[in-house]
């Protein structure tokens, strides 16, 4: 197994009074697509937010590229080279597609350097360039949210439920795009759609009731109906 880009060691995260994560550990090998699986409310999204420092863990360690992230503000964590695509996309509705991409630049010229790659992945965005983000369809917004994370050269991409609410044909296009971009970056994905997850990911981590309970190669999980039934309900 190649060296991990990201390591999460037994993190506990609270939101207000609530103990949301009660011991999540995971390891994301460089160049892989790793998927977080689990039921609704298991703590997958909170795990991504804890890595980003949006809901910083109170206990445990997050290590990115050998660096401990504890105590770092969210913007400093992002600057280390982590791109975040949150659930519900969180694109800026009043900004144009162009501005949604420009804002993600960390250095002047980032967008110019990556534009061709982004348009190759998502040709639609080129046509929509001057349109306000709020006028885009759900699928187009998802593409924009991913494209935004690709503007700076991020080494790790955290993508939360990209398939949510999208038509199958668009999910297919998104899967192809994520597969392409995983050639240059490591991907940690949250995905409810098990079919999509199983076709896309190399590795999986199952989170149940705020704790990581099992991880391994996706190819092994696909044949393990007992585990799928137990933690994910119907496959």
């Amino acid at each position: 197994m190649p060296e991990p880009v990201l390591e999460v060691r037994n993190i506990h995260t609270y939101i207000g009074q609530f103990h949301i994560l009660e011991g999540v550990s995971l390891s994301v090998p460089k160049g892989s697509i790793t998927v977080l699986l689990g039921r609704n409310g298991a703590g997958k999204t909170t795990t991504l937010k804890s890595i980003m420092g949006i809901t910083p863990p109170r206990v445990g360690e997050v290590i990115f590229d050998g660096q401990k992230l504890a105590g770092k503000a969210s913007f400093n964590i992002a600057k280390l080279g982590i791109g975040y695509v949150p659930e519900h996309r969180a694109i800026f509705r009043d900004l144009t597609v162009a501005e949604n991409l420009q804002i993600a630049e960390r250095r002047k010229g980032d967008l110019a350097a990556r534009q061709d790659f982004i348009f190759e992945l998502f040709p639609d965005l080129k046509k929509l360039y001057k349109l306000a983000g709020g006028n885009l369809s759900g699928g187009q917004q998802q593409m924009l949210a991913i494209a935004r994370a690709l503007v700076p050269e991020n080494r790790l991409l955290l993508i939360d439920e990209p398939s949510e609410g999208l038509a199958p044909v668009i999910i297919e296009a998104l899967m192809n795009a994520i597969r392409r971009l995983s050639e240059s970056a490591t991907v940690l994905l949250v995905e409810q759609n098990f079919r999509m997850a199983s076709r896309l990911a190399d590795r999986y981590v199952i989170i149940d009731d705020g704790a990581s309970v099992q991880s391994g190669m996706m190819a092994d999980l696909v044949n393990d109906q007992a585990t799928i039934q137990r933690y994910l309900g119907a496959a």
């Binding site: 949006i54 913007f75 975040y84 969180a90 009043d94 804002i103």
Partner: peptide, 17 residues
């Protein structure tokens, strides 16, 4: 651009670095 984006979602702006 950052201000206008922040008016909508300042957490996301921060997550962009």
């Amino acid at each position: 651009i950052v201000i206008r984006a922040g008016v909508q979602d300042s957490q996301m702006v921060e997550a962009l670095g």
